[in-house]
């Protein structure tokens, strides 16, 4: 039981992080806050992926020079799985791209309504 918790608590912390972000996206009324929540959510997912790549007792996936040429001596167990890292490079980029577009939208919204509170915007729309 203890072993199980020790070997899994990481995942649970990631999930707590994700849920903080998720709550920010859904429950917060301020648009920037929603966006911050989105960032947290995405980063937490990235964290989850990165940790998939972890191997105990392994090092970064850069093959040192002395191993070049002796292909069969490269032991995959010595190097961290690079694939999740690759995926997460993409995910980070997607995150920043979404943030950029969303911020542009926020500026447009602020120009239009003069506020960033969702309920106030709804009020303004209703009266329109």
């Amino acid at each position: 039981m203890m072993d199980f918790i020790v070997s899994h608590y990481n995942y649970w912390i990631y999930i707590v992080l994700m849920m903080i972000g998720f709550y920010g996206m859904m429950g917060k009324r301020n648009l920037v806050k929603k966006l911050i929540g989105m960032n947290i959510f995405q980063t937490a997912i990235i964290l989850y992926y990165v940790s998939i790549g972890c191997k105990k007792g392994a090092t970064v996936p850069i093959i040192p020079e002395e191993a070049h040429g002796v292909i069969h001596h490269i032991n995959p167990f010595n190097y961290i799985n690079p694939l999740p890292h690759v995926l997460m490079l993409t995910a980070i980029v997607v995150g920043i791209a979404t943030t950029g577009v969303a911020l542009a939208l926020i500026i447009l919204i602020h120009r239009q309504y003069g506020t960033l509170e969702e309920n106030e915007i709804l009020e303004i729309r209703k009266n329109d």
């Binding site: 980063t43 990165v50 996936p61 961290i80 980070i92």
Partner: peptide, 17 residues
């Protein structure tokens, strides 16, 4: 992430995030 060995990702996050 650096501590987990994901140096590339960490680099990116540090510069981007």
């Amino acid at each position: 992430w650096t501590e987990m060995g994901a140096v590339d990702v960490a680099f990116t996050e540090a510069s981007v995030g």
